[in-house]
């Protein structure tokens, strides 16, 4: 006996349907509630501190006054340094896995390694960086060591998104390229890679955004408590926004709250800009896409 055939079943189903719909609405609202709360709270408390002077001057009076210029510059340097190492390597690896890698045990191991790499806690990367770059390769506590450490942490994201972006480009384009006398690499470089580029860029930006916001990997490898001047060489240690926030919120007694909130707001805006940038690239590419 089918319940749907009973009189009144349709109204019951309609009620159930709209109840479920409302419930899902309420639940999804709860998921964005904390984000809205945090962002508003930080903007409310940090906005008054956020002046041009705060962004462009050195800290003063034991960091209790002045600006956060060296932390901003340091985070920029670290992000650029991370990109220099992770983007070419990650994109090349992604292209290899998507287009060239045969299906054998060797590439299976590579894939497992990439997935494992993505699951490692960031503090472990920090300790690895300390052992590998700072001590063993004697690069010291430096922008270079920290960038290399962050680059390794970012690699899995960049490799996976590149591979995925290449794979979604339809196979028929590869066949057509081949049928027109293009070598495999010519087809990839002229057609497949340009089509995959927006997806790759999105992955790169999201990976770098994570690197920019991390504290643990740079804690032992390149971040410093305080620097009276801006770093001048890749072998200098540097201040960085996330570590600076950690320091001023836990290590400096009597730290004015508005400076803490101001610093957090700057990091939040930095990360938000990268996020919006990535989303814009993706949306624009989707509109232009011809397949």
């Amino acid at each position: 006996m089918n319940t749907a055939n009973k009189p009144g079943a349709i109204t019951t189903r309609k009620v159930k349907d709209s109840f479920g719909y409302t419930l899902i609405h309420i639940i999804s609202f709860f998921t964005i509630l904390p984000i809205i709360g945090i962002v508003l709270y930080i903007i409310y408390n940090g906005a008054p501190t956020l002046t041009w002077d705060f962004l462009t001057s050195m800290p003063a009076n034991g960091m209790k006054a002045g600006g956060i210029l060296p932390a901003i510059v340091g985070t920029l340097y670290l992000t650029i340094g991370t990109a220099i190492f992770s983007v070419p390597l990650g994109v090349a690896a992604g292209i290899y896995l998507a287009e060239y890698a045969p299906h054998n045990n060797w590439t299976r191991i590579i894939r497992i390694a990439i997935i494992s790499l993505a699951g490692i806690p960031s503090v472990v990367y920090g300790l690895f960086g300390l052992g590998m770059f700072v001590l063993f390769l004697k690069l010291g506590n430096s922008i270079l060591s920290a960038s290399l450490t962050l680059a390794i942490m970012t690699l899995p994201t960049i490799i996976s998104t590149t591979e995925e972006a290449m794979r979604v480009v339809p196979e028929r384009f590869r066949v057509v390229c081949g049928s027109l006398g293009a070598t495999k690499w010519q087809g990839i470089r002229r057609i497949i890679l340009p089509e995959a580029m927006p997806g790759i860029l999105t992955g790169v930006i999201l990976g770098l955004e994570r690197a920019a916001g991390e504290t643990a990997p740079i804690l032992f490898t390149g971040a410093t408590f305080f620097l009276p001047h801006l770093p001048t060489s890749p072998l200098d240690a540097t201040m960085a926004l996330p570590y600076h926030i950690f320091v001023i919120s836990t290590q400096v007694p009597g730290m004015p709250l508005q400076i803490q909130f101001g610093s957090v707001l700057v990091l939040l805006i930095f990360v938000l800009i990268m996020n919006i940038w990535a989303t814009t690239i993706r949306n624009r590419a989707r509109r232009r896409r011809q397949w």
Binding site: R172, S179, L180, I191, Q290
Partner: peptide, 12 residues
């Protein structure tokens, strides 16, 4: 040269 059953213009 080869022509396929469905026209496949390159995304260019």
């Amino acid at each position: 040269g080869m022509v396929f059953s469905r026209p496949i213009p390159l995304p260019k």
